[in-house]
Design a binder for these strands. Structure first.
Lengths: 243, 243
DNA sequence: CCAAGTCAAGAACAGCGTTCTCGCTTCGTG
DNA sequence: CACGAAGCGAGAACGCTGTTCTTGACTTGG
């Protein structure tokens, strides 16, 4: 590992600067990011950008990856700030951090959780950052279940095909290895099913709010979100922790 | 009311044909709809389209409105096919119809439930068609509540601001007038809150599936959806109807 | 020190939404 | 029926976009 040459350093810096300017344009103009406008802002000619990103899609991919990572880091930080023994509090922290990040970065949120770009297929390196939030949710629920906080089994049993899918999903758990010892006792499939419900509801909520679908209906959107998150915690059986 | 002139008739027909071709292009190419490509398909010159739609955004608006109406009609038809006394069945029908429509028209679904177009503000005439699905959900839940199917009140009470919003929302109920007499007895705010939870979860589910976010996780997506919808019915307290 | 590699610039191409002007056709009305 | 008005399609043009290729200057490693 030799020290990077001057050229390599300035190249890395410029790459970051391009991404920063592109993020600014994204926030200002919405999804239609113009390569030429970014180049103008940097005092470059459009073709020069192609030394750093092979296409506009590649630049978008870089923004997508860092958006996933940014949101994931915010969520993980908020979750880690709550005592491990308080799963409900950790769940509320995850939700609040995700919503706050989304409201503060609506364009980037739209990039990662909005309609996918037509000809665009997410490359492999986005799946890791993309799963950080759901991984956090699953971890919280497992800890909760291990502590005895788990909703009664659903009235309607899971179909076998879904059970098999969830079992396989649990097999390639991307979280820290090895799995915590307490988790061995919890019914993994049931917890995973609940996690997916909460995950869907959480991002459904955030998307509706960020995309303005609640604007005409509700003024008290903060209260609405907080209430929904509490209801979901009840649904999941996460008991309030007396502090 | 005089008979429309020949010119008016052919104009209406051509307008419809433009929309049809645009829908085809939307389905093929995704969201980046090219006015010029549509014109080419119609054997017209691009500027001629401006006699029918003042801008590309106006054409998109027309597509959005008809997409809302199309989905709303599909949902209402499916719901009407179930006996009125079977709210759980009606809820399942609503969900299934919404999902089916979305999977069959992914581009149009992305247009109406994906990230909003940057500079674009939905005009007033889209709010009617846009609310058909949630109106159906609310009607089903009210009927269910009137028949005694209603979940226990949530463990966490609603904050006053949210209560006020829901009350006001109920005031401008866009469904058929007057309200059914049986509905007078049901706790409107509680039912509305549940309706919004279900609504969010339903479109969260559909969006995740249509936008491909489940593809890497679950193979049995049909079973997953059906199961989730049953769990939500339980959550709402919609009892199964023995037929 | 020099060949190889990297870089920014510039010109060019095809495609896009949109505007304007021009003849031609159709309409409502006197 | 006739005539001015309005609607219509074609064509050219403008400024924007992403992308490619070529050219000349600069930095790097052997």
């Amino acid at each position: 590992m030799t020290a990077p040459s001057i050229r390599a350093r300035v190249r890395a810096e410029l790459t970051e600067e391009i991404k920063a300017v592109a993020r600014r344009h994204l926030a200002a103009d919405g999804a239609n990011l113009s390569l030429r406008a970014v180049a103008r802002d940097l005092g470059m000619v459009p073709s020069a950008l192609y030394r750093y990103f092979p296409s506009r899609d590649a630049l978008l991919t870089a923004l997508i990856t860092s958006a996933y990572d940014d949101m994931g880091a915010a969520v993980e930080a908020a979750e880690a700030a709550v005592p491990r023994a308080d799963p409900r509090g950790r769940w509320l922290a995850v939700c609040g951090a995700a919503r706050t990040w989304a409201l503060e970065h609506p364009a980037e949120y739209a990039l990662i959780y909005g309609s996918p770009v037509p000809g665009y297929a997410a490359p492999q390196d986005t799946v890791g950052p993309a799963s950080r939030v759901i991984v956090a949710v699953v971890a919280v629920l497992f800890d909760g279940a291990a502590a005895g906080h788990l909703a009664q089994g659903p009235a309607t049993p899971m179909p076998p095909a879904l059970l098999a899918d969830l079992r396989e999903l649990m097999g390639k758990w991307p979280g820290p290895e090895p799995l915590p010892r307490e988790w061995a006792a919890v019914p993994a499939e049931a917890v995973l099913a609940v996690a997916m419900t909460l995950w869907t509801q959480l991002f459904g909520l955030i998307s509706f709010e960020v995309f303005g679908r609640l604007e005409a209906m509700l003024a008290a959107r903060q209260e609405y979100f907080d209430h929904q998150v509490e209801v979901m915690a009840d649904f999941a059986g996460l008991a309030p922790t007396d502090r």
